[in-house]
Every structure is written in structure tokens, then in C-alpha cells.
Computed example of a mutant assay.
Amino acid sequence: MTVAADDASCNPRYGENAQIQVEVYDGSGAKVLETLAPMNDAGAFSVSLDLPTDAVPGEGMVAAYPYNVDWCDDMGRNNRVGALGAQEITLVSCAIPSMPLRIEP
């Protein structure tokens, strides 16, 4: 299967060595895959994965998020904004972005 995303529209500036962390959970909720893949400065990526043959059928999940980037802390602040000198930001959810994955037997 391929997990991919286009560039973000908000210019996140992840940097030239950015990576995406992709996790796949099977129908039992167990993590069956975890990998890092290159991601461009604007957040686009594409990674091909082979689902393990022992993955439990059912409703699983694929999660993908920037690796080693902490922009959400317990105070609700964007930790990267101070270095950029930004005066105003729009807060967003810090939930891990995920999509459902139907695993057939």
C-alpha cells in the first residue's frame, strides 16, 4: 500500500532533512508497522509499505506525522513560533492525524 500526502497549504518549513513517521495498526489495534520516510519542507511525502501477512483483519488505522517535531506542548503553544518572531498564530488540534484502514482476510 502507499501512504502519501501533498504539500501543506500553511508553509510549515519542516526543513531539508524532514522525515514522516508512519504507523499502521491492524484490526486488533496492534501496531504492525512503523517506519520513517523522507518528507519535503512543505510536508509532502509518499511511502510504499507491505502489510504483514499476520495483520489481524478488520478496521485498522494508518497514522502519519512529522518525526521529531514538537509544536504542541501542554500549554497549547507552538514551540517553533518564538524562533520565527511570529506575533499571531492559529492553534490547531495536536491529535495524531490518522485514516481508517480496512484489512481484509
Rank of each mutant, 00 (worst) to 15 (best):
N78H: 09
V47G: 01
P105I: 00
M99I: 12
R77I: 09
A18C: 04
N78I: 07
D7F: 00
A44C: 05
G76E: 13
A37V: 06
Y14I: 01
V47C: 01
A5C: 07
P52T: 07
N40E: 05
V22A: 05
G29E: 07
P100S: 09
Y14G: 01
W71C: 11
V62T: 03
A83F: 08
E104W: 04
E23V: 03
Q21W: 10
Q87A: 10
T2I: 11
N17G: 12
K31L: 08
M75K: 14
D54W: 05
P57E: 07
Y25R: 14
A44D: 02
V92K: 11
V47S: 06
A95E: 15
W71V: 12
Q87R: 11
E23A: 12
E34D: 13
C72R: 03
V81E: 13
A86W: 14
P66E: 11
V62G: 07
N11E: 06
R77K: 11
P52Q: 08
A83E: 13
I96N: 05
R13E: 14
Q87I: 00
Q87P: 00
T90A: 05
E34C: 03
E88F: 06
E59N: 14
Q87V: 02
L49Y: 08
N40R: 09
D6K: 13
P66Y: 04
L101M: 09
I89N: 09
V24M: 12
R13I: 01
Q87Y: 01
L36C: 04
V92C: 09
E59D: 15
A44P: 00
V92F: 08
M1Y: 03
A55L: 08
V22M: 06
W71T: 14
I89W: 10
T2M: 01
M99G: 02
G43Y: 01
M99N: 04
R80D: 05
P97C: 06
V22I: 15
N68T: 03
F45G: 04
C72E: 07
I20A: 02
V56A: 15
V47F: 01
A55Y: 08
M39K: 02
R13D: 15
E104F: 11
P97F: 04
K31I: 01
V62H: 08
R77E: 14
D54C: 00
P12T: 03
R77A: 10
G85K: 02
A83N: 09
A55K: 06
R102M: 08
C72A: 15
P66D: 11
N68K: 15
A86M: 12
A64I: 06
L49A: 09
A95I: 04
G82T: 02
A95T: 12
Q19A: 11
P52F: 08
A18V: 03
Y14P: 01
E59K: 13
L91P: 13
M75E: 14
